[in-house]
Write a protein that binds this DNA or RNA. Structure first.
Lengths: 122, 122
DNA sequence: CACCTAGTTGCAAATGGTTTCCATTTGCGA
DNA sequence: TCGCAAATGGAAACCATTTGCAACTAGGTG
């Protein structure tokens, strides 16, 4: 949001980004924290949360909520608007770039007199 | 879950259901609690949560999560699978019964070799 | 109608994810 | 090398939701 913002390159931030880079599915903040500690890195849970929040704002990672309300994060390949297909069993995820849905959503919104439609689909 | 379960008709349960009946949009457990107290009714917050949980299991109410993770509940007209169109400003909601989406979702799932697809769309 | 008992209630305390406080550390431009 | 704002992290605060438990009650039974 901030017009000009300087972000430093810290060991912790790099570690979190690396972890997300390797991950093949969504991870929760706590899972990342555990994984980092397991690797022997000293990173505070608070720091993980703060960086994920920052990266989400910068749109470097995607953020979705599980059914139980826990936040899950994932580094996305494209910076564009898209959806995910998530396996409930193993968490395997497929990214979707779907114009059809967009078109459909807009038409639907018009029909019901809504505007500025955004949507979530998992 | 229990095969045979007897549910009593209590003052509190009726009040919660009434409130949902009148509501024109989603309500959080806390909002309901406040509303009931405002009406002069003595209902414990715990009771509100427990009844909402029960009603959700019995599929008498729908349950969705707001962006911030808070649970919102609404009594639905139809007991069938459907989606909602929610106004981000006022909370006004439209229920959708959409076969097209279902079909699309299934085709998409097949394409990516998923099965037993469920989805959320708001 | 009085009784029984499992469903129900509600306060307090516990949970669990996430955020805030604040003192200390650390990038990094000058 | 200096200086300082950004960043860190452990503890405490937050807040929605859940659980423990003793008291209460709807509603079927004798």
């Amino acid at each position: 949001m901030a017009a000009i913002q300087r972000h430093r390159a810290t060991r912790q931030r790099a570690a979190i980004l690396d972890l997300l880079q390797e991950a093949e599915s969504f991870l929760s903040a706590q899972q990342m924290h555990d994984a980092l500690r397991a690797k022997g890195m000293k990173v505070g849970l608070t720091t993980v949360y703060r960086n994920l929040q920052l990266m989400t704002e910068l749109e470097e990672v995607d953020h979705v909520r599980r059914e139980d309300g826990e936040s899950m994060y994932r580094r996305c390949d494209s910076g564009e608007h898209h959806h995910h297909l998530v396996c409930r069993a193993c968490g395997y995820t497929v990214e979707l770039a779907n114009d059809q849905l967009e078109t459909w959503a807009k038409a639907l919104a018009r029909k019901h007199r809504f505007s500025q439609v955004t949507h979530d689909l998992e």
